[in-house]
Amino acid sequence: MRGGRVNRLELTGLTARPSQVWGGVRLVPLVREAPVEGLRLHREVYEGLGAGIVELGPRARYVSYIPHGLVADWSGGDGTDPAAGRRSAAYGTQFGGDDAPRAVPLPALPHHRMARRRPGDRLRFLPLHLALEGYLALHFGGPSTAWEEWSRTALRDGLSPRAEDAYLGRSVRGLADALRIFEIHPGQCGVMVYVSDALAAAFVVPHPDDYRLLHASLVEDLYGELVHQYALYGAPVPRVPVRIGGEEHIRDLDGLRSAARAQERAWARAHDTLFARELLDSSYAFDRVYRMGSFTLWRFLPPFVRDSGGQHIGETITGHKGQVAYLKTFRLSDAQIRRGHLLRTLAGADWELDRAAAALGSDRRELVRRLRAAGFSALLKGGVRDCPHTAENRRKPR
């Protein structure tokens, strides 16, 4: 992870097509007028049950469900030249065993790093896990100052271990059927997945051939708790009516074609205005993971602002002009947003409870309660309850 910036996501060059509705799931196809030149993605399938260990460093490991990896190829091959681009296209789709809401058995073989260079101009990375590991590592080191309220474990090990729950796409009711039933548009390079009209995920690739062969892999992705609940308990979403022509009289095929294109443009504007705003209007903290020629792989985190609607973590590959070639996002639950907000506030206050409470507009007692409710009880000493701060609680450098 090198470098960083704060910016917005821009899906320039991608156009939304009319939505495809199946029960509570709405798919919005994204098409490109022309593929992104110089980059292709293919899928690397792993044997076993899909769980794995990722060795992040000499003493750090990440354990999660990992059904497949993606290999980014910027060698310039188009997938047809046996010398330059033999492995540049995405190959195959493989489904695992029994459907299960969660599958995190102990893995046997480790993966080395979230992103690892392969021979030639290729990089293997684990889709979504770059983003999830970035969220789990948020202020992972714990208190930077040895205030007396923090436990020895917190000062020694920080937030280790840190765990979050996620659900497989197969357990999101209606998603597998929607992906199977609806046709893929010509030029389609991505999709926005909505559940009960809440944005669940965005997925974008550089080339239509890559998307065609990675489309079904969305059921193997991870989705947040809120998405799973919306799919399970939500009602079917309304279809968006398409009316061509309106009060105008269409007299020939040219008129029909013109009216259809006008309706497509109207739908694209409506989607960008009504549906995708929570993803596109938010500012993100981007961390650079790897530079690949003229492309850069980033992961990003939201501002963790409470009561601001849905917030997403994710990863993206951009070109030198900032064009999004690849994108995959994960919608955080309200509880995950609250945990991120708490950790950022604590770090900003140098982990001093009184200062953090003031920044949150509450008092020390309420902050302690919120820390325990968020699952951070192990960070606090056992004797820290709702008592007010005393003069004996002095700062000690670590």
Rank of each mutant, 00 (worst) to 15 (best):
V54R: 08
R86A: 15
V45Y: 13
G77K: 04
G38V: 01
Y135W: 13
V45Q: 15
T153H: 12
V28C: 11
P29C: 07
P127K: 02
P82S: 01
G69V: 02
D81T: 12
P110F: 11
S88E: 04
V71Q: 08
L27N: 09
D78G: 15
W150P: 00
L123H: 05
T93H: 13
L128F: 09
W150E: 03
E55A: 14
F140W: 03
Q20P: 02
H111I: 02
W22Y: 13
E148T: 14
G77A: 07
Y62C: 03
P143L: 06
P58C: 13
G38R: 05
L70N: 09
G120V: 07
G38D: 05
A100T: 11
R152G: 15
A137C: 11
T153F: 14
G85C: 06
R86H: 11
R43D: 00
A115G: 10
G79V: 06
H112E: 11
R152Q: 10
P101V: 10
D78I: 06
P35G: 10
P29F: 02
P58R: 15
T15L: 08
G97C: 08
H129T: 02
H112Q: 13
R40P: 03
A84N: 10
A108T: 10
A89H: 10
R43Q: 13
L136S: 08
T93Y: 12
G85M: 01
R40L: 05
G97H: 04
G76I: 04
A146N: 09
S19F: 04
G24L: 07
A16M: 09
L41P: 00
R122F: 00
R43E: 08
R118F: 01
V21I: 12
G85Y: 01
S64V: 04
H68A: 14
G23K: 03
L126P: 00
M114H: 05
S75Y: 01
L130Q: 09
H68C: 09
M114E: 06
H112G: 07
H111V: 05
H42A: 09
E44D: 14
P143E: 01
D121N: 15
G57E: 14
Y91I: 10
A89P: 04
W74C: 07
Y65Q: 08
G92C: 04
A60T: 11
P58S: 15
A154W: 01
D73M: 04
W22Q: 15
R17M: 08
G23P: 01
T15K: 15
A60G: 08
P29A: 09
R117Y: 00
P127C: 04
P127H: 03
T153W: 12
P119M: 04
